[in-house]
Simulated scan of single mutants.
Amino acid sequence: MVRRLLVEDVLDGLRERIIAGEFPVDSPLPGELELVGQYEVSRVTVREAIKVLHAQGLVRAERGRGTFVNPMRRWTSLPAVVRALGAQGDPRQVSLDLLEMRRVLEGGAAELAAQRIGSEELTALARLLETMRGASAAADVEAFVRADLGFHAEILAASGNAFLPVLMEPLSAVLAAARAQTSAVPEIQAHAIEEHARILAALAGGDGAAARTAMDAHMQQTAEDLSRYIIA
């Protein structure tokens, strides 16, 4: 357990240094012994952390030369990509790119869910929507965000496709942080409640095309709200 925590510490430290640009693309990481000294851990711990960076595509090994940083297009860790784009890219574009991805995934999820959703899931969605309304009236942003995220998670699960929730899970922390920012704006809360009600109505009607359209409209409204209230 202790070594696993040490590995995580080294891994997080190196990943953050790569994201921050301390080690640019194609530059070498410090040697094993240097990293042992920097992090005050064993060589085995350093090797395990480097192994994870390899698995996530952040670095590559070049025989006889060392370990080098890969360009972001080769990274396979979604959280690392999101953090790097947030640190190095245009925050407005990052937010809009995330919405585009959600539009593709969640629109399809809503269409599938309309065909497969059961009464229990519909009841859960209705409760979450009421929670959003109550939280908005009480100016409880934290409760609003929890219900909002729960609403979307319920739809992903109701799609019946096991891959969709797994694909979205790495974004959970990013989405929660983004919702906390946007949901502090009363106008955005009002729009979200309206759009979620339309999505629920389409799901309850079993209309896949209408559910996809309603989810797409929600994402479009979110993009407009971001541009108007948050990243103008």
Score class of each variant (00 low, 15 high):
Ser159Thr: 11
Ala176Phe: 03
Gly37Ile: 01
Arg47Asp: 03
Leu122Met: 00
Ala153Ser: 12
Ile19Val: 15
Leu112Met: 06
Leu58His: 09
Val7Ile: 13
Glu194Phe: 04
Ala223Cys: 10
Leu125Asn: 01
Ala61Asp: 11
Ala173Asp: 14
Arg15Ala: 15
Ala135Arg: 05
Val145Glu: 01
Pro24Ser: 01
Ala158Ser: 12
Pro186Gly: 10
Val46Glu: 10
Gly31Arg: 08
Glu187Thr: 10
Asp26Gly: 01
Arg74Asp: 15
Ser136Asn: 06
Ala109Tyr: 01
Leu6His: 04
Arg146Asn: 09
Gly31Glu: 13
Leu128Ala: 08
Leu35Tyr: 07
Leu164Val: 08
Ala55Met: 02
Pro165Asn: 02
Ala190Ile: 09
Phe151Tyr: 06
Glu121Lys: 01
Arg60Lys: 11
Ala178Gly: 03
Arg73Trp: 04
Asp9His: 14
Asp12Lys: 14
Ala135Gly: 09
Ala143Met: 15
Leu58Ser: 10
Ile19Ser: 02
Gly86Pro: 00
Arg43Phe: 04
Phe23Glu: 07
Ile50Leu: 13
Leu203Tyr: 11
Arg212Tyr: 08
Asp140Ala: 13
Leu156Val: 05
Glu8Phe: 09
Ala20Glu: 12
Ile18Glu: 08
Gly57Leu: 09
Leu105Ser: 12
Ser227Cys: 13
Ala157Leu: 09
Leu122Cys: 02
Asp207Leu: 02
Glu195Tyr: 04
Ala80Gln: 12
Arg15Ile: 06
Gln220Met: 13
Leu78Val: 12
His191Ala: 07
Arg116Ser: 14
Ala114Trp: 04
Ala80His: 11
Leu99Val: 07
Asp216Ala: 07
Ala153Trp: 02
Trp75Val: 12
Arg83Lys: 13
Glu48Leu: 13
Pro30Asn: 13
Gln115Leu: 14
Glu8Ile: 01
Gly37Arg: 15
Asp97Glu: 06
Gly13Pro: 08
Met72Tyr: 07
Leu33Lys: 14
Ala147Arg: 09
Gln115Ile: 02
Ile199Met: 14
Gly205Ser: 07
Leu167Thr: 12
Gly208Cys: 07
Arg65Ser: 08
Asp12Glu: 15
Leu6Phe: 04
Leu175Gln: 15
Ile188Gly: 00
Gly206Asn: 09
Gly31Gln: 08
Gln115Lys: 13
Ser95Ile: 03
